[in-house]
Amino acid sequence: MEERIKILIIDDDIDLGRLLVNCLRKENYQPIYAENGIIGLEKMKKSKFHLIILDIMLPEVDGFSVIRKIREVSNIPVIMLTAKSEEGDKVRGLKL
Rank of each mutant, 00 (worst) to 15 (best):
G40E: 00
G40P: 00
S85P: 03
L94V: 04
I9R: 02
V91N: 07
E3D: 13
P31G: 02
F64L: 06
L58C: 03
K46Y: 09
R18Y: 13
I67Y: 04
M80N: 08
L96E: 14
L51Y: 08
I70F: 03
E60H: 09
I56F: 10
M1G: 12
E86H: 11
D15M: 13
K90L: 08
K84I: 09
K95D: 14
I38M: 06
D11S: 10
K26F: 11
E3F: 05
M80C: 14
V21E: 12
K95P: 00
V21L: 10
M80Q: 10
K45E: 14
Q30M: 11
N22H: 12
M1V: 04
D55Q: 09
M80A: 15
L20N: 07
L54C: 05
I56L: 15
L16R: 09
R25F: 08
S85A: 12
M44E: 04
I67C: 06
K95N: 14
R92Q: 04
I39W: 03
E60K: 13
S74I: 05
L96T: 11
E72P: 05
A34F: 02
L96N: 12
E42Q: 13
F49W: 08
P59R: 05
E87S: 12
G17V: 04
E87T: 12
I53G: 01
N22Y: 10
M57N: 14
E3P: 02
E72N: 13
R68A: 10
F64H: 06
G63P: 00
L51F: 10
I7A: 03
N75C: 09
E2V: 10
V73I: 15
M80H: 09
L54H: 05
I52L: 05
E72F: 07
D62K: 00
D15L: 15
Q30C: 12
I52G: 00
L58H: 03
D13L: 08
L19Q: 10
I79Q: 09
I56R: 06
E60F: 09
D55V: 04
E72I: 05
P59T: 01
K48P: 01
I5L: 14
I32C: 08
T82W: 07
P31D: 04
P59F: 02
L94C: 06
E60I: 07
N28R: 13
S74L: 08
R4Y: 07
I53Y: 03
D55C: 07
K46M: 13
S85Q: 14
G37N: 02
D12R: 05
A83T: 11
H50W: 08
P59C: 04
A34W: 00
I32Y: 10
L81M: 14
R18A: 11
A83S: 14
G40W: 00
A83N: 12
N28D: 15
V21M: 13
L24Q: 02
R68S: 11
E35G: 07
G37D: 02
F49V: 01
E86Y: 08
I38T: 06
K6N: 11
N75I: 07
D15I: 15
H50D: 15
L19H: 11
L20W: 06
L58T: 00
N28G: 06
Y33E: 02
G88C: 07
I32V: 15
D13F: 08
Y29F: 15
R25N: 15
E3V: 03
D12E: 10
E3M: 10
E87I: 12
M80R: 09
L54M: 08
E60C: 04
K84P: 03
G37K: 02
F49M: 06
E87L: 12
R4I: 00
